[in-house]
Design a protein around this nucleic acid. Structure first.
Length: 559
RNA sequence: GCGCUCGUAGCUCAGUUGGAUAGAGCGACAACCUCCUAAGUUGUAGGUCGCAGGUUCGAUUCCUGCCGGGCGCACCA
């Protein structure tokens, strides 16, 4: 379903056209699309209604469109021009006065400009990053973090009530390996004999040795402990240290998680049994070959899945079901998970679990994050956690900065692979459009400062009369663009595609730079025009600011 | 082999859920600072939207089949 537009122009046109169509005793087709045409010379908006209604009206689409066009002009004073075009489009141009009032809309709303209520306060739980606390975050996690955090901001702008959560996998094999790895390093540092497990059965990164060293410094007798107890202590300490590091990296990256949810606590609280009972009561489980199975195949999965293995232990899927069951119990209407794209094969079984809980399909969404190919001077940088030769998120932030890294992550569809070249991201070219957008904002601020120096002051709400000098094609282009900001945010929220926001900002910045080069904003001999343009620029600056906020990128006042 | 996904300008990618003559940046070439920030602007060149069918007023978009790349197919997490 297409969401209803909030753009004032579209709203106005829809209302007028609806009345006309009803007057003709025709029915408003659900497939009506009102949108800006590809070519701006066609007008501000374009409607396909005549083509959809031709059959019912028994009139050629072109003639019907002409009829609609003339009625629109009679009926609606905001419409300056309406005409039939192409196979039966109806193209509409609004009056300049109509567009100018957009400035006041922006000024009145301020930081809230662009917010809508399509979300209707539905409660969303957005889970992202959730990396195992077995090592520092790397660049791939950074992409998921940027996308998740910006999605939260985006959905809030669209009127959803969003909680963000990090699921801490603090139970299971990975944690045992972490404890073992630190424990063995500690023994090694004390020159005790150590037999290393097979490759892949322990973590090798330098941070493991660092943690072992810190622990020994705090307690020189650490290695006197029996193996089991020592490993347990190492696991607990290491996990907390690593988690602290992750939290600090996320803070540096302007990424917020409001909730931190422990898998261990969940399991110990009996959530698995509760979830199992729910599935069993609905008749979705069975026992086979000493294992406990979940019949996911009937719910769209490739085959049924094991929940409790024949050795009595739980599968990862089991606790994940319990986790999602618990999310619903906490009252959320919509669960959004941000996962690495290598987990896409996991989606059908999770969907099956959601269905088995009796929840509608729309209540669960997965946003897949494709691989980040980290490059340096065009050459790939290896990123294996266990090999210990990865580039951490923290290193990348230090090198290129949070703004550039976030914008880069957010400027492409999250489910397609991304080449992240460290040298490129530091460059100030259009391969790296963050500067282009930030520069547009800084430029506007510079003009506003200059105006203030000259003693020109704008009212906080600009009266319409003051804006009448805005009459060029470039003025209209900017006004139309900022008028569409809220709709763009809605569309982006609906498709869970944050990249739409960065594309929009790049386009808006292009219009601004072009405008700036073409029209002198402050003119010594034309105070009224200066005021009007200043007000327009201030509004554009506000929109850039709001858009950058959604991306979690700063809007500098000077560069 | 099965499933998911992608294939759009030389390169990196958009394409608003089926609309009109398919866009942007980079790279190339050529113009713009006595003037509010040149991290900028303007212009030119560049395309069989992987291939072949189908659905309809209309397809880059939806369906089918091929070709090619990525990923996934555990009583792992």
């Amino acid at each position: 379903m297409r969401s209803r537009s909030h753009m004032r122009a579209i709203d106005t046109l829809r209302t007028a056209l609806k009345a006309i169509i009803e007057n003709e005793r025709l029915t408003w087709p659900s497939k009506v699309v009102i949108e800006p045409p590809r070519d701006v010379t066609f007008g501000d908006l374009s409607v396909n209604a005549a083509m959809l209604l031709a059959r019912e009206a028994k009139t050629p689409p072109r003639a019907l469109a002409e009829n609609f066009a003339s009625k629109l002009m009679e009926r609606c004073p905001d419409i300056a021009k309406a005409s039939a075009a192409g196979p039966g489009f109806c193209n509409v141009t609004f009056t300049p006065e109509f567009w100018r009032t957009t400035v006041a809309e922006v000024e009145a709303a301020g930081d809230a400009y662009g917010t809508t209520s399509v979300g209707a306060h539905r409660r969303v739980l957005l889970e992202y990053v959730s990396a195992n606390p077995t090592g520092p975050l790397h660049v791939g996690h950074g992409r998921g973090a940027a996308v998740g955090d910006s999605l939260a901001r985006l959905l809030r702008m669209a009127g959803y009530t969003v909680d963000t959560e990090y699921y801490v996998n603090d139970a299971g094999r990975q944690m045992r390996l972490l404890g073992l790895s630190v424990w063995l390093r500690a023994k090694e540092l004390c020159n005790l004999p150590v037999t290393w497990p097979a490759e892949g059965e322990y973590y090798k990164g330098d941070y493991i040795r660092d943690i072992a060293r810190e622990m020994l410094a705090a307690d020189p007798h650490l290695t006197d402990l029996p193996d089991a107890e020592g490993q347990e202590r190492c696991y607990t300490t290491a996990m907390h240290k690593i988690l602290d590091g992750i939290k600090s990296d996320l803070a540096d990256f302007r990424v917020e998680h409001r909730l931190w949810f422990s898998e261990k606590t969940l399991v110990e609280g009996g959530a698995v049994d509760t979830a199992f009972a729910a599935l069993s009561n609905a008749g979705h489980t069975y026992d086979k070959e000493h294992a406990f199975w979940f019949a996911t195949e009937k719910l769209g999965d490739d085959k049924d899945r094991v929940l409790r293995k024949s050795d009595g232990s739980l599968t990862y899927f089991a606790s994940d079901i319990a986790y999602h069951h618990d999310k619903f119990r906490r009252g959320y209407d919509w669960l959004i998970d941000v996962w690495g794209a290598d987990h896409h094969g996991y989606v059908p079984r999770m969907r099956a679990a959601i269905a088995a809980m009796g929840k509608p399909q729309e209540s669960f969404s997965v946003v897949l994050i494709q691989l980040v190919n980290l490059l340096r001077e065009g050459k790939p940088v290896s990123m294996s956690t266990r090999a210990g030769t990865f580039e951490t998120l923290s290193d990348v932030i230090k090198e290129v900065g949070t703004d550039a890294a976030r914008f880069m992550f957010l400027s492409r569809k999250s489910d397609s692979p991304l080449d992240f070249d460290l040298d490129l991201v530091k460059q100030r070219t259009m391969d790296n459009p963050v500067y282009y957008v930030q520069y547009a904002h800084a430029r506007i601020c510079a003009v506003l400062r200059r105006a203030a120096d000259r003693g020109i002051s704008l009212p906080s709400l600009t009266p319409p009369a003051l804006l009448s000098p805005l009459d060029t094609a470039e003025d209209m282009a900017l006004l139309r663009k900022i008028a569409g900001f809220g709709d763009m945010l809605c569309a982006a929220a609906q498709s869970l595609g944050v990249h739409h926001v960065s594309h929009y900002l790049t386009e808006l910045s292009g219009l601004l730079h072009s405008y700036y080069a073409r029209h002198q904003v402050l003119q010594e001999n034309d105070q009224p025009r200066s005021m009007a343009r200043l007000a327009l620029l201030r509004a554009v600056g506000q929109v850039l600011h709001n858009g950058l906020f959604v991306l979690g990128v700063s809007a500098p006042e000077s560069m």
